[in-house]
Every structure is written in structure tokens, then in C-alpha cells.
């Protein structure tokens, strides 16, 4: 799973950080506001197309295992805990912990939809992690709010650092014969408790060191200037106009319940034409963006 930003020569990478934020926000809002699986699919396709045109597809898709795990977990948990739905597939009583379970087709479908929804949200954040330069975001936010900028800097810098620490700790433990992956699931989880404690401690230590280094260079001592500034290009205006329109569009159709999708008692697609139009809009816009991205690259 790649979690670090990758510098690349693409149209997305040269956009103003505000434009990048608007693209990600617009796509993120689709599954966030809608339980409709078409909305999740639309978000998934849109972000995948943009990731492809930005040259980070391999890094982005490296999250698929984690998303598949979330998807399966969502289906399984929902199958056990929800007995709603009219199409009963399985009834069983006397199961430890759960007692009586009723597995319905609607329940399974709801679980799959929620899994897809969570996965699409995760994948939008995954795209953000690998394609948006944290330095640019920190630079954008820092003059306005010291605390939020500090938090952003720490979080975005810490995640890859903690991943590296985690890898080093696992190697060091293996090198002295401690196998954290031995035993059953519970034992493996227990094995990892000291590791997690260590990572949490390292995370805090790194945070303190970074805060100390920032304070030593007068961070938070007064008003700041901005030496590195970003200029909006014509491409930025186009991207902001289209994706902001998409953002308004999705908020409007969601508020007017034009994207409804009922799972219980039986599956009923009550999505209106405007809802479908919204989903298709994002996919089309992403395709157009990737075409412009290819043209931009060829023109260089």
C-alpha cells in the first residue's frame, strides 16, 4: 500500500492546490452524501481515471487489498447483524454470540453497497495521499491558521515515517527471532500490542521533535509571509469551474433526494434522471480531464 506522495509530471500535479482540493472534494462528496451504489461506482471510476491520467495509478491501486478486506468485512458483518429484507437466503439458530441469524439478499446487497461506499471514500483519500503534495497544502494553509497547518504538516509527514518505522521494527524483531505473525488471529493481534505501543511512542516523539524544530525556526511567533506562492492558470479556472459545478450538482441532487436507493424491505431503485445525470457527469468530466491531461503532456 503506497501512502507517500509521488512527484510526477502531469496536469493534475501542476494545478493550484486549491484546484486539487476541489477535484478531490467534489469526488469525495459523491459517496459521502449518497448510499446509492451508483454514486460510489461513479466516484471510484472518476478517481481511477484521474489517477491514471496523473501517472499515479499503480500507487493508487496498491490500496485494493485493503479495500477488498473492508468490502468483504462489510458484507460479512451485515449478513450477520441485519435481518432486514424480504428475500431470505438462510436462517439458522443457535449460533454462538449471534444466536439466531437470518441472511437476506437485501442485507447482503446493503453490505456490499456500504463496502463499496467506504472503499470509494478510502480510494479518494488514497489518491489524495499519493498525488497531492503535502508541502503545497501546508504552504497554502499556514498563513491563516498556525494550529491547523501544524497538524496537517505533522500528519502528512508522519504517516510515511511511521510506515517506515513499522517496517524497520518488524525487520528488527524478525532479526532476533520474534515472529509477530505466529499463532492464530487473536495471538497475532496480541503479538502486535507492544509494536503498536512502540509506534505510538515513536509517533509522539517525532511530533515533539518536529514541533521543537519548527519553534526553533520561529514558527508561531507572529504573522508570516509567503515566499513560495502559487498562481492560478487558465487550466485551474476551467477545473475549478467544472468540479465546483459538479460539487454543487451533487449536493443539490442529494438534498432533493433525487439519488435515492432503497435496500429494505426489497431493493428499489428510486433514483431520478437528474441523479443518474450527476453520476455520469463526474465520469465524463474525469474522462475529459484525462484527455486534456494527455494533450498537455504531448504539447510539452
Amino acid at each position: 500500500m503506497k501512502i507517500a506522495y509521488k512527484k510526477n509530471d502531469s496536469l493534475f500535479h501542476i494545478l493550484h492546490p486549491v484546484s486539487q482540493m476541489i477535484i478531490c472534494a467534489a469526488i469525495l462528496v459523491l459517496p459521502l452524501l449518497n448510499s446509492n451504489p451508483f454514486a460510489s461506482l461513479s466516484a471510484l471510476l472518476s478517481v481511477g481515471i484521474i489517477a491514471g491520467s496523473s501517472g499515479v495509478f499503480a500507487d493508487w491501486i496498491s490500496w485494493w487489498r485493503f479495500c477488498l478486506f473492508i468490502f468483504v468485512l462489510s458484507v460479512v458483518i451485515n449478513a450477520f447483524v441485519s435481518s432486514n429484507g424480504s428475500t431470505v437466503l438462510l436462517k439458522y439458530s443457535g449460533l454462538p454470540v449471534f444466536g439466531r441469524i437470518v441472511v437476506t439478499a437485501e442485507g447482503l446487497f446493503f453490505g456490499a453497497s456500504m463496502g463499496l461506499r467506504i472503499s470509494s471514500i478510502i480510494l479518494v483519500f488514497a489518491f489524495w495521499a499519493v498525488a497531492v503534495d503535502p508541502d503545497r497544502i501546508l504552504n497554502l494553509l499556514s498563513p491563516g491558521s498556525s494550529e491547523s497547518a501544524l497538524l496537517t504538516a505533522m500528519t502528512m509527514r508522519m504517516v510515511p515515517a511511521v510506515a517506515k518505522d513499522s517496517r524497520e521494527i518488524l525487520e528488527a524483531q524478525a532479526a532476533r527471532g520474534i515472529d509477530l505473525d505466529s499463532g492464530g488471529y487473536i495471538k497475532r493481534m496480541n503479538n502486535r500490542v507492544p509494536l503498536l505501543r512502540k509506534l505510538a511512542r515513536d509517533f509522539l516523539d517525532r511530533g515533539i521533535s518536529l514541533a521543537e524544530a519548527m519553534e526553533s525556526r520561529a514558527y508561531g511567533s507572529g504573522p508570516r509571509s509567503r515566499l513560495v506562492s502559487y498562481v492560478f492558470s487558465p487550466a485551474d479556472f476551467g477545473v475549478i469551474a467544472v468540479f465546483a459545478a459538479g460539487l454543487v450538482f451533487v449536493i443539490a441532487v442529494s438534498a432533493m433526494k433525487l439519488t435515492s436507493f432503497d435496500f429494505y424491505p426489497s431493493i428499489r431503485v428510486s433514483t431520478q434522471a437528474q441523479g443518474y445525470a450527476c453520476f455520469v457527469f463526474f465520469i465524463l468530466v474525469s474522462v475529459v480531464f484525462s484527455v486534456f491531461s494527455a494533450l498537455w503532456k504531448n504539447s510539452r
Partner: peptide, 28 residues
Amino acid sequence: FQDPEAQLVFEDPEREIAFGLENLAIEP
């Protein structure tokens, strides 16, 4: 500081060097 990893705020060397100046509100 001792650990070069722990004191760098930015990933871009130029922005890293600019950071202290921005904190002192030095004009561009």
C-alpha cells in the same frame, strides 16, 4: 538538531529553506 529526519518540515528543499524566513515575515 541531531537527527536530520526529525527537523525537516517540508519535502521540497526550497520550501524547507524558505520556512524560517516566512516565519520571520521576511518579504518575498
